[in-house]
Nucleic acid binder design. Structure first.
Lengths: 212, 212, 212, 212
DNA sequence: CATGAATGAGGGTTCATTCAT
DNA sequence: TATGAATGAACCCTCATTCAT
């Protein structure tokens, strides 16, 4: 029953175990991998529990809901991402350096938070429809503003081509960079740094030699 | 779903209604829009039926299963895409022209088969795990071979930069082009042609002016 | 998941079968008996389904939730009760006659809506805590006002003893009358009419001044 | 609950802590309040533990089960009630005095064992179905016999009206008196004594022949 | 072509209870 | 005495699918 079930109006019932617990982190990592690999909706709490070697009900000792698991996974990544962007913007002033550095660090983030990034890519649209995940949209908007500002400044400074629509260029870069998480293999030959440099090369100079 | 859920193994009863029927196409279009908008797993047959103004059970007069609906949707798009690529390869010989034409027509396909493309982007990985959808993987491989060949030929001919890893370049282009379906608005200011040309511009020449 | 489960924001999803259906009424009667006999919380949807000879999931073709079943059961009874009271107030003007008639018809209602009355007695307090059932409190207040007005008028007219606190008297009567549903046996020797007359006898002999 | 849910049949391990312990009583009082306020089934052991500032598992050091908590609560009240009735019957011989005294002391008991009385009213029917609580039925029967005897004696003596069915009259009184616990507010204006006297007034005025 | 009613498997979640520490 | 983590059974509900009419 939607209504008569939970909302007894008694207390908050925050996540049972403290937010910092060891076990929590382990379980969260497991869940993140499954959500990334198979999809949030399709992954069952029983699968997560199986992966952890416990029963599904036991997960609820640590978490309020399956929902709150993704929530925690995504928030952590988004916070990290936010700090990372802030850092770059503080350190760099040159538009080109800023842009390449944003790309480089995005790839590094992708390497570090691989599952979270995948989940973000795949599930954000679905999750956004629920109030609880409104922050996903806000974060996306913040990131967009950051990139667009850099691109605009570079264009104004004559560093980036004037014939480019910054909005399109932004999407071009964003999609290109972040979608790679879908095939990026952290243990493969093509590590994050290599890919980043290749992407930067194409972005900055295109694929043509100039003599086509 | 016969395969993804029940897997009764009872063999494929042919779809009750003729494959070409009018009503079928309408229902398929409705389903495609919902699958694209909300996701295949999350879209219920009842939602599709609601959209069509009938009851969910009635859908089974037209289709074997929810599964067979996506199947049909994806096959149609993939066939189209195949023909389109064949065409380009027949018409063009110049690597640069081939590449730009592939991009251009991809955008055109995206415009025409918007829902199908979205579904393909979002659900292929999920659907591939079922035998019935093995052709998705095969199609992806075919497309990859096509692009890679073009890129390789261009690189061999000195038209495309030699320092690029063709595999990475391929993925770069593929992701960049096809992911745009997620935000492409067929009724927006930025129509498919405009975006295509901007993408081609970035791809070929990069975003730098050369004086950065 | 509380949030990601239902609220897709698509359409109302009103009770699947029309409100007036035959089968609905049968199922509702079954549910009412169980809710009355065993308690709302303790009665499982499987028990209801078992009683109806179907599977628990099938109940959801007819009803949105277990909650909506009680809702319907209670509303129907409350509406009836409301009409019944209105009728008495329209027909009678003499306080004593009004009061005895209210008692008589309450017993008749109890006979007719036995399960619903029991559910109301037992579960109202629990259900009221949920917004959806706010009308239970409102109905109770309405009924209270009706009785209190009658008692007050009778007291003002010198028909009812002046030393009685009307509020206490009201509760006395209400509890005495309605609680009897807990032991009333519709097929027993003591039928509703007999009990009603006895109760009226006790009540009137008690609250009358002797000169009514 | 060992019996109501698990029924492991493993026999009653004696409660870990001494039956008379201080902490036990505190916990029991807390539990009683919650059981009375929210209902036995609906109250979770976690809620009780929360109220006590400990974890739910810790309750099991003090008590065998949730079941054994109500058990203890109800037994204590029932014992008290039994002694109280015995007392009245020893002290009084006049039917009218006996009856009014029974009412008076019932209200006093209600005041003192408010939560226990509420629980008894609300949950006896549910709990009786479990063997362990068979004594609830026996106690109810004992009480009934007591009242009926008094009523019968009064009727035989010509003190109570002859046209009353003693069984109905008993139920009338019992329900009227005990149900008031549902709205009785120990800190309200209408204290137990006031209500008792009003109830006695109504009752006696009604059931007396006038020549008592 | 469509309805109405059902199936049956599974999903997320709850909760009394256990037990090693 | 209490904690922390888990168990396991049950619960409400969803949904693709079936089928007689």
């Amino acid at each position: 029953m939607a209504e008569t079930k939970r909302s007894t109006g008694r207390g908050q019932r925050t996540a049972p175990a403290e937010a910092g617990s060891q076990r929590r982190s382990e379980l969260l990592a497991l869940a993140a991998d499954l959500f990334a690999e198979r999809g949030f909706v399709v992954t069952t709490v029983r699968e997560i529990a199986d992966a952890a070697g416990i029963l599904s009900g036991s997960l609820y000792y640590h978490f309020d809901s399956k929902e709150s698991m993704v929530d925690e996974i995504l928030r952590e990544f988004l916070d990290f991402q936010q700090r990372l962007y802030d850092e770059v913007l503080r350190e760099q002033t040159d538009p080109r350096a800023t842009l390449t550095e944003l790309v480089r660090r995005s790839f590094r983030a992708m390497h570090q938070y691989r599952s979270a990034v995948t989940i973000y890519q795949n599930e954000a649209k679905y999750l956004q429809q629920f109030e609880r995940f409104g922050y996903l949209r806000r974060a996306a908007n913040d990131f967009e503003r950051t990139w667009i500002k850099v691109l605009q400044q570079g264009q104004d400074a004559g560093v980036f081509r004037a014939d480019l629509n910054v909005k399109i260029a932004y999407r071009f870069i964003r999609d290109t960079v972040w979608t790679s998480v879908h095939w990026y293999n952290p243990r493969g030959r093509l590590n994050a740094e290599v890919i980043a440099e290749q992407y930067i090369a194409i972005l900055c100079g295109g694929i043509m030699t100039g003599q086509g």
